[in-house]
Amino acid sequence: MLATPRMRRLVALPIASLAALAMVFTTGQSASAATSTTTTKTATASKLKASTAKQLRQARAKQRRANRIGTAARVAARQKGDPYRYGASGPGAFDCSGLTSYSFRKAGMKLPRTANSQYQRVRKIKKRNIRKGDLVFFGGSRKYHVGIYWGKGRILHSPYSGSRVKVERIWTRGWSAGTLRLRG
């Protein structure tokens, strides 16, 4: 017969008591000292289980967030070839921040409408830590353009009037990186 989690808990208490008795006989400790030691070990095990459960929840949350960012990148990729139109946020035409806000919204994540507002919302990261799906911002203290990092020094963006959503190389060193990934 396989032991269920409930059965294991029911058996664990008597086993802990037996362990305390065994400690009394082998070490000469009093029963209360032996029980205290066993209780401490049980409490430590419970803390480890709680810590492990928390780490597992955090890992799952990170994975869900990464999946959503990947979905946003795929949504943006499907917009390739759509025309640029100032102030447009899809689905048939986009400006730069309209493309990013539309893509992340479709992936279930909220992102403000303008490039500068998006920059204020994301967690800033170093350029060397950028990954596909992160955001690339252009401009000084006030960001005027945004694109989705596509890997190998390229971004997917809606660049300017008369152009279309496309992937192209980053043309300047004056850019900043931001992410919606969770820390860790």
Rank of each mutant, 00 (worst) to 15 (best):
L2E: 12
A3K: 13
T4D: 10
M7Y: 07
R8E: 14
R8D: 07
V11E: 11
I15G: 05
A19G: 14
A19T: 14
M23G: 13
S30R: 12
S32R: 06
A33M: 12
A33N: 13
A34V: 03
S36K: 14
T38G: 14
T38I: 15
T39G: 10
T39H: 05
T40Y: 11
T42G: 11
T44D: 15
K49E: 14
T52M: 08
R57I: 02
A59F: 00
R60T: 06
K62W: 01
K62Y: 01
R68M: 13
R68N: 13
R68C: 06
T71V: 03
T71N: 03
T71Q: 04
A73W: 00
R74P: 00
R78E: 01
R78M: 00
Q79G: 13
G81T: 10
D82Q: 11
D82C: 10
Y84Q: 13
G87M: 04
P91T: 11
G92R: 14
C96W: 05
S97G: 09
G98P: 09
L99R: 03
Y102F: 12
Y102I: 00
G108R: 00
K110E: 10
L111M: 13
P112Q: 11
P112A: 14
T114Q: 03
T114M: 02
A115L: 05
N116H: 15
N116C: 05
S117Q: 15
Q120P: 03
Q120V: 15
K127L: 05
K127Y: 06
R131S: 15
R131M: 14
R131Y: 12
K132H: 11
G133E: 08
V136T: 04
V136Y: 00
F137K: 02
G140C: 07
R142K: 11
K143N: 03
Y144E: 13
V146S: 03
G147D: 04
G147E: 03
G147F: 04
Y149T: 09
W150Y: 15
G151K: 02
K152M: 07
I155S: 03
L156C: 06
L156G: 02
S158L: 07
S158E: 11
P159E: 04
Y160N: 12
S161E: 14
G162A: 08
G162Q: 06
R169N: 14
W171V: 07
T172V: 05
G178H: 01
G178M: 03
L182T: 02
R183V: 10
R183W: 06
G184I: 01
G184R: 00
G184S: 05
